[in-house]
């Protein structure tokens, strides 16, 4: 965003004020204040949003997080083959080869500190917000799917057909790649991601969301006191999602 566009924007706000009626005359002031407030409300690099999944509390066959995600983000099965439908979050059932130990856990975008999807994206559409949330800017995504090749977690989906029933706060459409946004539209309103809320409501409380950078947050305290792990920690991507009990 250049200064030039910014000036044009403020100029427009000024014109609003000059235009006339009493209400509009307030507009420039209101506008500037709301802009300043918006700045303060933006994503801050002091925060690192993260999640802790306690696999010992996660039940095999429970799909509450997946359903809640689909409702919140208006994700429906496509009309093509099941392999072509988007899945922002999925339940993985695991069985250890040697011992037969079974566990179940939700897998979604791990919101890496060093995201490979951001590295390979040719246009810069894959990006990481200051607060650690990895997103796709659909305005400049060209649908090359290189990020899907690069993601070690298979977290990304490609929209294979035209969509119509989007949530107004979660734009999605044909030809772009997408993945879990940590429900950024809810986080920016001070709410929890839909999956975490659903897991708690369901009585499992296997998912904990919070600021990894804030030592006083519950998630930071839990991570500091309990052994947790990152999936594919060998790749040293430092994911924001951690797992307990693997």
């Amino acid at each position: 965003m250049s200064d030039h566009t910014r000036r044009k924007f403020l100029g427009a706000a000024g014109l609003t004020g000059l235009a006339g009626s009493g209400l509009a005359a307030l507009a420039p002031g209101v506008h500037l204040i709301s802009l300043a407030a918006a700045h303060a409300n933006g994503a801050s690099s002091k925060v690192r949003w993260g999640m802790l999944v306690d696999t010992t509390r996660c039940a095999s066959g429970c799909n509450a997080c997946v359903t809640a995600c689909a409702t919140e983000n208006a994700i429906q099965p496509g009309t093509g083959r099941p392999a072509q439908s988007s899945q922002w979050i999925r339940k993985i059932e695991l069985n250890e080869f040697k011992t037969g130990r079974a566990l179940s856990l939700p897998m979604m975008c791990q919101h890496c500190e060093q995201p490979p999807c951001v590295d390979v994206c040719p246009t810069g559409a894959s990006f990481k917000r200051a607060d650690g949330i990895v997103l796709v800017d659909r305005h400049i995504c060209i649908g090359c799917r290189y990020c899907m090749m690069a993601c070690p977690y298979k977290a990304r989906s490609f929209v294979h057909e035209p969509l119509t029933e989007q949530n107004p706060e979660v734009p999605r459409g044909k030809g772009c790649v997408e993945s879990c946004t940590l429900c950024v539209q809810r986080i920016d309103k001070g709410q929890q991601p839909a999956c975490v809320e659903a897991c708690t409501k369901n009585g499992r409380s296997a998912m904990l969301f919070g600021d990894l950078n804030d030592p006083a947050s519950e998630i930071a305290k839990r991570i500091a006191t309990t052994p947790t792990s990152q999936v594919r920690a060998d790749l040293r991507l430092n994911p924001g999602v951690r797992y307990q009990g693997i």
Partner: peptide
Amino acid sequence: QAWPLDLFPGYAASSSFFD
């Protein structure tokens, strides 16, 4: 691409997303 990603080495994985 046909060969699946191994997210959890040492475990057999299955999911609705073809893990």
